[in-house]
Amino acid sequence: MAVREVKLCLLGEAAVGKSSIVQRFVKDQFRPALESTIGASFMTKRVEVDGKHYAFQIWDTAGQEKYRALAPMYYRGSAAAIVVYDITREQTFRAVKEWVSELRKNAAQDIVLAIAGNKCDLEDLREVPYKDVQDYAQQKNAIFIETSALTAVNVPDLFIKIAHQLPPEDMLTSRMNTSSIKLNDTNQKRKCCGGPSRNEMGSRSGIL
């Protein structure tokens, strides 16, 4: 059985519900007041979408500012990134724009980008209009979906849409290589921004 490995990361402001979305997707659970993530949490989930098997390696990053500089380690080599905001807090959508431009600049060119407006069960408190984000996402060629980790609305759909948008498998070879870092090379220079070019990354081997 061919299983397609998909490295995926979640990015976004603190307390927008990144970990809650992952909990909902992986365990179909919701816990109010999850503790804040330290660095990043790693989880795996195998799913079948339209008869194809996917193994998601999910890196759920911390939203706190002090971990900001670590983000490139997680989106580097990712096949997909989900940028999450909270529809009840305008400022969290502004952060989405920063993440999207950073990803477009530094992540792999064919990365599948998804924007998730979480907490859509709180319609009464909405600050971010649906249409605004829809237009923005279209312009940035990103998937857009509103979700609720609490009610589970659209959480599976978010990942289905991502699975559909992944480039065909035969183009995958270069992707596999980009997702590994050469572990022996201790002198490797890694800047937090302006990551290495695709060619450079592609030449690294995944096997030690």
Binding site: V47, E48, V153, D157, F159, I160, H164
Partner: peptide
């Protein structure tokens, strides 16, 4: 938005 475009099964 919630119309599912595909079937997903947890493994």
């Amino acid at each position: 938005q919630g119309v599912s475009e595909g079937m997903m099964k947890a493994l």
